[in-house]
Computed example of a mutant assay.
Amino acid sequence: MDTLRLMHLFTRAIDLGSLSAVAREAGTTQPTVSKAINALEAHLGVRLLERSTTGLLATAEGVRFHERARRLLDEYEDALAEVRGHARQATGMLRVNAPVALGQFHLNALAQDFLALHPQIEIELILNDRFVDLVGDGVDVAVRLGGPLPPDAVARTLAASPRWLVAAPSYLAAHARLKKPDDLARHDFLRFAWLADGDDITLQRGEELVRVTTRGRYRVNNALAIRDSLLAGAGIGMCPHWLVHDMLRSGRLARVLPAWSGTPQQLALVYPSRRYQPARARLFMDFLAARIGALPGWTATPA
């Protein structure tokens, strides 16, 4: 039994979501691929896939085996390239997770640039504003913006973006002028939901730090919704520069208390804590490290 071949067909079935797609890629037939995966399941003594009219669904055992099998196949290919004395071209599926707004503003375009440089790599970019289980969800690289990092992962900080108080000119014209941080308590404050500090924010002016309790009737767990609400004149918000730099430049938003700023937002790459990292993941992280710091609103963090 060619176990490596069976593992390869199984991992590609999960990656592509279709036995027919695997068959086309491998230059064989769908029944052949199906029989191969059946043989792998018989060899392991567990069911890896549930087949239905709507597609494929990995079982719990299949999800766990897929992660291990992908890692083993990557290590095997790298070992072959090393013993043959040449570098292997990076191939395979790269799963990336990132916040929605960051994906829309930056990562979607960067992913296209990366794919153009590496034609044998595929990217599955999943955008959501929740922390994912890197191993359980099969994520190779996750992009994190601030907040605590998973204890079972390795983090690499790439850049930082200053955070400023901003509001639409229409809102500022219709409300009392702000002269000091404590004045924020008398304004509508928009914030991200589920923040650890709740309604409290910390502002800095040089070496001076102040903590202010804000008030507001609207909280949302999506940065794009906060941006849209600010543009609509719904209140004042604390936003990273990368999210609002274009609106500040055009005058559609204005800084509030410009002498004060919040703690900069850190951007970090997070990946599973394991000794071996696929070549495609290493290439992608190095690519982002070289590009992120040069984007509007970001400053590269020294390595």
Rank of each mutant, 00 (worst) to 15 (best):
V270Q: 00
V141I: 10
L158F: 12
A223T: 01
D182N: 10
S229A: 07
N221R: 14
Q277M: 15
E77P: 07
H43D: 06
D129R: 13
N128H: 01
P296I: 12
Y271T: 14
Q266G: 07
D137F: 05
M285N: 06
A81D: 12
L195T: 13
V46T: 05
M285Y: 02
G55Q: 00
P272T: 08
N128R: 09
L269T: 10
L56C: 00
V270Y: 02
A174C: 11
Q266V: 14
L243N: 06
A69L: 11
A87Y: 09
W164A: 15
G147K: 13
R144K: 15
T202R: 03
A225V: 10
F192D: 00
R130F: 12
A42I: 02
L4F: 01
V63D: 13
V270S: 04
V132L: 14
G136P: 04
A185Q: 15
V220M: 05
S170Y: 10
L253K: 06
P31E: 01
L248I: 13
P119L: 13
R217N: 08
P240S: 10
Q112F: 07
L248K: 10
A155F: 13
I37H: 01
S34G: 05
L288F: 11
E122Q: 14
L110T: 00
A79K: 05
L172N: 02
L102K: 04
D197I: 07
P162R: 13
L16T: 06
L49E: 03
L115A: 08
A289D: 08
N97H: 15
L267G: 05
V100K: 10
P272H: 06
S261H: 13
S229T: 08
N128K: 08
P278Q: 11
L19F: 03
V244C: 09
V63M: 10
L73D: 05
G62A: 04
E41C: 00
M247K: 14
G297K: 03
S229D: 07
D129C: 13
V270G: 04
L145S: 06
G45M: 01
L16K: 00
R215P: 05
R249L: 11
N221K: 10
D152P: 13
L248Y: 10
L165F: 04
L283F: 01
V212G: 05
P181C: 07
R249C: 09
L195S: 12
A69W: 01
L56P: 06
S161I: 09
A60I: 08
A79Q: 12
L243H: 09
V220G: 01
V210H: 07
A79T: 15
L72T: 11
A254Y: 08
V139M: 09
V212L: 11
P99E: 07
A232C: 05
L80P: 12
A79C: 07
L56F: 01
H106M: 14
S273A: 13
T299L: 06
R227K: 09
L6C: 02
L288H: 00
A60P: 05
H8M: 00
G138C: 06
T53K: 11
S229P: 06
R291I: 07
G55R: 03
Q266H: 03
P302K: 03
L73R: 10
R282T: 03
I292Y: 00
G237L: 00
L16Q: 05
L248A: 08
W260N: 11
G206P: 00
I37G: 02
